[in-house]
Design a protein around this nucleic acid. Structure first.
Length: 483
RNA sequence: GACCCCAUCGUCCAGUGGCCUAGGACGGCGCCCUUUCACGGCGCAAACACGGGUUCGACUCCCGUUGGGGUCACCA
């Protein structure tokens, strides 16, 4: 480790939402910074005016915040630094590392088309590199539009990648890429190098799809005489169809997972294990543990397919371990939104919500599941599951239910123990199995055949509600049978 | 097509020359627990892509083949 502080960054372009690939890269950078006591920075790469939209910038920052990736310094916006890039582009021209290219976009497209047709290399053919000084001056005097290209020298470029080890490329396989557009503005690679250097970035951890850029950027570092940072290229996250997750394919915004009830801790934990491993049999780790374990020599170089099922399994685990009151706070707005209750009602019955959530949390895989699972705790107009009703709502059972209701009503202490005792006693009196009473009672008070322990459910619902619901069910059974 | 990367159960991850009759997790299946559904517990099925080397010995090292992925914009 060097003496200088570790500084890493996530540099999204605001031309789309944050998908899981970007999120994971951000997480790795964050963890790396925290592990080494360094700084995690954010840079918004909005040099492309056409495609950039502040709406996406906001969405990106929200996503980072949701994941808990707090950045350590002010956000850098490339749009504020246009002049800095222009200056550097000119420097390239002056130092001879760059040259003017007068080829029109149309011409270049034509060249590529031809190369493709002839199954030849599609790199730039260096037509303008061979222009004489006089020709260049003549064009400039004429006011012809030109881009600036970086001249890639002969030889070979290599660097030691944190993930894949030594990476090599013949320079002839690189092209003289454009660093400044004809309007003078810088392109991606120039801006990135200028910024990474300027921001003191020590480690560039980014997706594997950037390796070609890295080779190109290395030449920019050399041209400017900048010190090279360390590079690490993360394997891609693939979709089940094995395509890499990308904006182009319209891949899902990570915040969509939030809306679908995924906890950020679960997403964080799951994403960490895609392309990196603590090399143990454990999978669930706290943030602190991850920070402690996160070293760059544990990256897995092969691509990984994103598996929502496994994410959800992590989520289930995190829900099960989350304190009831925290879950209640997350569920409350969803219940209101679903029109099951009101904000006011919940405010006065917070303890009730807390108990409901606690009783259901081992059954929820996602936060939104609580709405469906708990509906009958809030709404009285639930329907009885028809199959279960056909089975349990018989007139015979109505009699039993009626007697059970009377006994429940007489109870002084409406507790788990008292309820269990009462129900068992009636079952004994009648010489029937307890299940004979349990199922119709569950159906009567919840409309469902599934749910938490019956007694736990009754206690939460409270005596008057239980009695009322049971009486109503009995009425319905009687009416149905007499009709 | 050129260049680069990758290759262990369906999926994610262990395995760094003998501990492997290849381990864990998700998913699947079965059993147990149980008033239901979950949770939990136990168990089963499920993989070293192929071919050559190197070695006393290869999942592990090398080469090739095949397969998959990525990149080839005046986008980032």
């Amino acid at each position: 480790m060097t003496l200088s502080e570790v500084r890493v960054r996530i540099a999204p372009s605001p031309s789309g939402y944050v998908h899981v690939g970007t999120a994971r890269t951000a997480i790795f950078n964050y963890l790396f910074a925290r592990r080494h006591g360094g700084k995690f920075l954010v840079r918004i790469e909005n040099t492309d005016k056409e495609r950039s939209d502040p709406v996406f910038t906001e969405a990106i920052l929200s996503a980072l915040k949701w994941l808990g990736l707090q950045w350590d310094e002010e956000i850098v916006y490339q749009s504020d630094r246009i002049d800095l890039y222009k200056t550097h582009a000119r420097k390239l021209l002056e130092s001879g590392h760059g040259y003017r290219c007068f080829c029109s976009p149309e011409q270049l497209a034509q060249d590529r088309e031809k190369a493709r047709a002839e199954k030849k290399d599609m790199r730039y053919n260096r037509r303008c590199l061979n222009l004489s000084q006089a020709e260049v001056e003549a064009q400039v005097a004429l006011g012809s539009a030109y881009t600036i290209r970086l001249r890639i020298p002969e030889g070979e470029t290599n660097f030691d990648d944190l993930v894949s080890g030594e990476l090599k490329r013949k320079n002839e396989d690189l092209e003289d890429f454009i660093v400044a557009r004809s309007d003078g503005t810088a392109t991606y690679n120039l801006a990135v190098v200028v910024d990474d250097h300027d921001m003191g970035i020590t480690h560039v951890l980014r997706g594997n799809d950037h390796v070609t850029n890295t080779f190109k950027q290395i030449h920019l570092y050399h041209s400017f005489g900048f010190e090279l940072p360390k590079f690490g290229h993360m394997p891609m996250i693939l979709r089940p169809d094995k395509k890499k997750v990308s904006k182009r394919l319209g891949d899902k915004d990570v915040l969509a997972f939030q809306r679908e009830g995924v906890l950020p801790e679960a997403m964080f934990n799951y994403l960490c294990l895609l392309g990196w491993s603590p090399k143990t049999d454990r999978e669930i780790y706290s943030l602190e543990e991850l920070i402690d374990l996160f070293t760059s020599d544990n990256f897995n170089p092969s691509n990984a397919i994103f598996d929502v099922e496994k994410l959800v399994a992590f989520n289930q685990e995190y829900i099960a371990n989350k304190p009831d009151h925290e879950l209640a706070a997350m569920v409350a707005p969803l219940l209101v939104e679903a029109d099951l209750t009101t904000k006011y009602w919940l405010e006065t019955r917070w303890e009730y919500l807390r108990q409901v959530v606690g009783a259901l949390k081992l059954r929820a895989r996602r936060i939104v599941d609580f709405v469906e699972l708990s509906a009958y705790f809030f709404a009285f107009d639930y329907q009885y599951e028809s199959d279960a009703a056909a089975k349990h709502f018989t007139s015979e059972n109505a009699e039993l239910l009626s007697e059970l209701t009377d006994r429940f009503e007489r109870l002084q202490d409406f507790t788990h123990e008292a309820l269990e005792q009462t129900l068992s006693a009636l079952a004994d009196d009648k010489g029937i199995k307890r299940a004979r009473l349990i199922h119709p009672t569950r159906l009567a008070v919840s409309g469902r055949s599934k749910g938490p322990s019956l007694y736990e459910m009754l206690v939460i619902l409270s005596q008057p509600v239980v009695v009322e619901r049971m009486r109503r069910a009995i009425e319905i059974i009687k009416n149905a049978n007499s009709a």
